[in-house]
Nucleic acid binder design. Sequence first.
DNA 1: GCCCAGACTTGAACGTGTTCAGGTTATGAG
DNA 2: CTCATAACCTGAACACGTTCAAGTCTGGGC
Lengths: 226, 226
Amino acid sequence: MNDSAEPGLTARAEQTRSAIVEAALRLFRERGYDAATMRAIAGAAGVSTGNAYYYFSSKEDLIQEFYLRSHADHAAACRDLLDREDEFSARLRGTVRSLIDVLNPYHAFAAAFYKNAAEPTSPLSPFSKESSAAREASIALYREVMAGSSARIDRGLRAELPELLWLYSLGVVLFWVYDTSPDRVRTYRLIDATVPLVDRLISLARMPVLRGTVRELVALIHELRN
Amino acid sequence: MNDSAEPGLTARAEQTRSAIVEAALRLFRERGYDAATMRAIAGAAGVSTGNAYYYFSSKEDLIQEFYLRSHADHAAACRDLLDREDEFSARLRGTVRSLIDVLNPYHAFAAAFYKNAAEPTSPLSPFSKESSAAREASIALYREVMAGSSARIDRGLRAELPELLWLYSLGVVLFWVYDTSPDRVRTYRLIDATVPLVDRLISLARMPVLRGTVRELVALIHELRN
DNA sequence: GCCCAGACTTGAACGTGTTCAGGTTATGAG
DNA sequence: CTCATAACCTGAACACGTTCAAGTCTGGGC
C-alpha cells in the first residue's frame, strides 16, 4: 500500500499522477518555475497537456506537492536532533537550519513561486485553507521544538509560541528567498544570530518588565484569530 | 510645468502616457488586476496594445505608477498630523491609519498585485532596486514620525528605527491584504493595539535588561545590510 | 518648401496557462 | 460475452502578456 496514493484513483492512474509530479519537480529544479511549462511537464511525463489538468487543477497546484515533500524531508532531517538534544537554542537553531538545507536545492525555483504564495486568495498562501494541513504540520514541528526542550517558558506564552516560532521560520525563509550570497551563508548567519535573541526574549518574557507586554501580545493574537 | 512629466517625452506623448495610466488605474480599481487586460487598458486609453508597451515595459510596470501615487496621497494625508502632533504614539498611529485609508479603495486590486511584490526578482518587490525610490520616500516618512516626536529614543536605535517602523507598516499592510472584515476594521484594531506595544518596546529599549539585546539587534541589521 | 532622423504607433504573431468537446479504456452488472 | 457507465485521456482552441517588423508622424536643419 502506497500511503501517498490518492483515494478514487486506480493503480495506473496513480502511476500517471506520480509521473507528472516527478517531471514537474525535476523541471522546476532544472529550469525554474516559468521555463518549466505545462507542455514540457506533460511531455516529460509522457502524457498530454490536458491530462495534466485532469490530475492538477493548475500549475500552482503542482506546487502543493512541493510543499508536502519539503515538509516531509524537513521533519525527517530534524528527527535525530529533536530526539537527542534538549537545549532550546540548539533545537530551534538545528530545526531552522535544516529547513534551509532542505530548501536550498530549490532556491531559484522557490524565489519564483513564493510570489504566488503571497497572494492571499491563492491556495498556495501559507495562510490559506488549502495549506492548513501543511501549516499545521509545520507548527507541530515547532511545538515539538518547544515541548522537548528544558527551557522555562511563560505559561501564557506556551500556547502561542509554536505559531510564533513558525512565523519566525517564515521570516527566515523570506530572507533566504532574497539571499544571493554563495551557499546562502548569510541566511545561516541570520539564523545563528537571531536564535539567541529569540531565546533571550523568551527568557525575558517571564520577567516583570516584559510580562505585561507579552500578555497583551498574546491577548492580541487571540483577538485577531477570533 | 507638470512635475510628473517624464524627460524626453513631447507634450503629446506625455498626454498619451497619462491616458494609459488613468485607464490602467481605473480598470484596476473597477475590475481587479487580472480582469484589467492590457488590451482593455490600451483600448480604454484609445491606443493600440503595442503602444502601451512603448511607455510601460510590462503590466507590472504600470503598478509602479500606483506605488508612486499611493505614496504621494499618503504623505499628503499625514501632513497635518505630522505638523501638529508631537506625541510619538499618536504620530505613528495616525500615519499608519492614513496609509490604510489611502489603500482601502484598492483592496481587491492590491491583494492581486501583492503577489508580484513578493517575488524578489520582480521590480515590484518593496526590497528591489527599482522600488528603492519609493522605499526611501516611505522610510523618510517614518523618520519624520520619529524625529518630530517628543519620545526619548535609545541613541543606537535612532538610525535604524525609521526602517524598522517601515517594516512594521509593511506587516500591517500584509495583514490588511488578508483582512476580509467589513471596512477592514480588524486592520484598524490591529494598528490601535500594536502601536502602544511598539511605543512601549521603544521605551524599554533604553532600560538595562533590553539594551544589550537591542544593541545586538542593531549590529545584526548592520551586518546583514553589508 | 523639402527632407530625414527619430519619436511614436500599429496590429499581427508568438508562447503561455487553461478549457473543453469529444475520444478511448477499464470495470462491473446482467 | 455484452454493454453501459465512469474513469481516463487527447489535442485543438481560447485569451492572455508580450514582441516586433513595419508603418506614420513631427520637428528642425537646409
